[in-house]
Amino acid sequence: MKIIFVRHGEPDYRELEERFYTGFGMDLAPLSEKGRQQAQELCQNPLFQSADLLVASAVTRALETASYLACATGLPLKVEPLLHEWQVYESGRKNFETARTLFLENNGKLLPDSPIQYETAEDMRVRFIESLAKYRDYQKIVVVTHRMLMRQFVPNETIDFCQVIECEIEI
């Protein structure tokens, strides 16, 4: 299946940080004004004209990005809660950064003596494939999701906000 990956636009965490939200609470953050502009500009990409369906993570920043695409393209929008960002099982920014460093150092594996528990690369791949299995009859779908999940399928070290990457994935 052809997948057109789209990373969500730039989020704005300020209000949630001011209220001390953590963990999945941070996933409620909307796009920043710059993120909304990125999402609107994204809609001009001609690659979307050949897509059959738009599937988005249920996380606010991805869903808001997808809403711009759905309005501009007329593609039907499906929301998939399992297309969320990579999970770190301890809260706090410091733990997240430590987990990300360990994840990258260990090529996505979780070592038995890891001081922080996190989702492995293989777990993310399986979660993605399982969540998209119901769409296998489609030829080409747009998936609005998150950088760490996208990195399990595309080799890009850096994936910018609203970056578009097309690839073929066996679902």
Results as ranks from 00 to 15, higher is better:
residue 62 A to L: 02
residue 124 M to D: 00
residue 24 F to G: 11
residue 44 Q to C: 06
residue 165 I to E: 10
residue 136 R to M: 07
residue 76 P to T: 12
residue 88 V to C: 15
residue 143 V to H: 00
residue 6 V to L: 01
residue 109 K to L: 10
residue 41 E to V: 01
residue 144 V to D: 02
residue 121 A to F: 11
residue 96 F to R: 09
residue 109 K to S: 13
residue 156 N to K: 05
residue 52 D to Y: 05
residue 3 I to R: 00
residue 109 K to Y: 07
residue 35 G to P: 00
residue 101 T to Y: 09
residue 149 L to W: 00
residue 29 A to V: 04
residue 45 N to E: 07
residue 91 S to A: 08
residue 32 S to E: 06
residue 141 I to V: 10
residue 98 T to R: 12
residue 163 Q to S: 11
residue 40 Q to T: 04
residue 55 V to W: 00
residue 24 F to R: 15
residue 8 H to D: 05
residue 15 E to N: 14
residue 57 S to C: 13
residue 39 A to C: 07
residue 58 A to I: 00
residue 59 V to M: 13
residue 112 P to G: 13
residue 98 T to G: 03
residue 78 K to F: 05
residue 111 L to K: 14
residue 144 V to F: 03
residue 107 N to K: 15
residue 60 T to M: 06
residue 61 R to Q: 11
residue 80 E to I: 06
residue 12 D to F: 05
residue 17 E to H: 14
residue 110 L to W: 10
residue 24 F to T: 11
residue 158 T to I: 13
residue 122 E to Q: 13
residue 35 G to I: 01
residue 30 P to M: 12
residue 12 D to G: 10
residue 89 Y to L: 14
residue 156 N to T: 03
residue 155 P to L: 08
residue 119 E to C: 11
residue 162 C to T: 08
residue 1 M to R: 03
residue 132 L to Q: 04
residue 93 R to M: 09
residue 13 Y to N: 12
residue 28 L to C: 08
residue 34 K to P: 06
residue 129 I to H: 06
residue 150 M to R: 00
residue 55 V to I: 14
residue 57 S to P: 01
residue 12 D to S: 14
residue 80 E to S: 03
residue 78 K to Q: 14
residue 55 V to C: 04
residue 62 A to I: 01
residue 66 A to S: 07
residue 31 L to F: 02
residue 111 L to Q: 14
residue 163 Q to T: 09
residue 109 K to D: 09
residue 91 S to H: 07
residue 13 Y to P: 04
residue 57 S to F: 00
residue 99 A to C: 10
residue 69 L to P: 01
residue 99 A to H: 07
residue 91 S to E: 13
residue 49 Q to A: 15
residue 135 Y to C: 12
residue 166 E to T: 09
residue 72 A to Y: 09
residue 139 Q to H: 13
residue 134 K to T: 10
residue 99 A to Q: 04
residue 33 E to G: 07
residue 163 Q to F: 01
residue 86 W to T: 04
residue 113 D to V: 05
residue 76 P to D: 15
residue 54 L to W: 03
residue 79 V to S: 08
residue 75 L to M: 15
residue 21 Y to P: 02
residue 128 F to A: 07
residue 106 N to T: 14
residue 153 F to L: 09
residue 125 R to L: 05
residue 60 T to G: 07
residue 13 Y to T: 05
residue 40 Q to D: 07
residue 87 Q to R: 09
residue 93 R to I: 08
residue 94 K to G: 06
residue 89 Y to H: 09
residue 38 Q to M: 09
residue 107 N to P: 03
residue 133 A to F: 09
residue 126 V to E: 15
residue 14 R to T: 08
residue 158 T to C: 11
residue 75 L to Y: 04
residue 79 V to F: 04
residue 4 I to E: 02
residue 123 D to R: 09
residue 92 G to T: 06
residue 108 G to V: 04
residue 97 E to N: 11
residue 9 G to K: 03
residue 29 A to P: 02
residue 101 T to M: 11
residue 83 L to R: 00
residue 35 G to A: 05
residue 153 F to D: 07
residue 83 L to T: 00
residue 119 E to P: 00
residue 7 R to M: 08
residue 3 I to L: 15
residue 86 W to A: 01
residue 149 L to G: 01
residue 44 Q to P: 01
residue 15 E to W: 08
residue 33 E to L: 13
residue 110 L to Y: 03
residue 61 R to Y: 03
residue 50 S to K: 15
residue 46 P to C: 07
residue 70 A to K: 14
residue 54 L to A: 05
residue 119 E to Q: 09
residue 103 F to D: 01
residue 92 G to Y: 06
